[in-house]
Amino acid sequence: MSTLVIAAIGPASSVQDGGRFGAQRYGLTPSGAMDRLGLAAANCLVGNTLFAPGIEIGPFGGALVAREGAVRVALAGAPRSAEISGRAVAWDTSVTIADGETLKLGLARGGSFSYLAIEGGIAGEPMFGSLAVNARAGLGSPYPRPLQAGDELQVAAGSGTAEQRIDLPAAVDGPIRVVMGPQDDEFGDGINLFLDSAWKISATSDRMGYRLEGPVIRHLHGHNIVSDGTVNGSIQVPGNGQPIVLMSDRGTSGGYPKIATVITADFGRFAQIPAGTGFRFKAVTMAEAQTEARKFAELLRTLPDRLRPIESFDLNIEALQDANVAGAAVSAVDARTWQIASPADALTQD
């Protein structure tokens, strides 16, 4: 076994995997990676199952040290500058941190969450089949909370396998696609305002929900409904008319009308939109959404086909490009925002 020591880490960084399912009927939310493609790509690079536990790294940087042996890791999700002992590390590749070396990570660029997968996963005690941190419920392993400097993860010793890169499809731009409902009939003209307006992610967002800033969406019959179930991507509209998109740590039920739901294929892309960045929604039919969900599942299933050996040429060029843009763009997210949201956010209890 080797140890991966967290020497420094920004807020909103935690161990996440595919999430825990089957206990939403008891009020236990699934949690799990905000951007499943990012986690899956990182795991794929080090030969893990796609949703093995890895580290979800929030908008800020960090430093991780290998101890008692080498640690083989991979980086995917929101790109950021990365280096080991002055050598730049390219994004979407695997890399081995030698015993005693430090992997330094900069700020996320053009996204919010990066994923660091570790060959062989992370040792911990699964709860409902998952190590995913759910800080509110005190769940997660090896630490039932976001990571802090000084934390140590027990991991497998690096195997020395040749490093790889993964050739992911080009990032999709364009509006975030939604399926209307379940309570779109509570809104009337508000639906057009919702679909036709530019929105921004508020700085007071977190893993439980992304608050949106834009025009006030009015309800036809008030903002209280009898609580019903929620899903990842449920867009609820509370009394102030500013929608909240429910994310991986959402409450399992909520008492505000939900105007629409982000489609599965766009949920990770939505999760990556940095605070302060503008975007729009677009309604699609259920048939389109389910076609996209099947395509997304197929993309995940075929990720291993996208692995490529790293040629020294690739490594140098990509690493150089990476080093050149490092620091040029800085995430708009504010350090104070990526905390556990104020408990008032949770007051959607019926």
Partner: peptide, 11 residues
């Protein structure tokens, strides 16, 4: 009621 592409609310 459609709740996204992976859930349905039976109301």
């Amino acid at each position: 009621l459609p709740s996204g592409d992976g859930a349905v609310t039976v109301e």
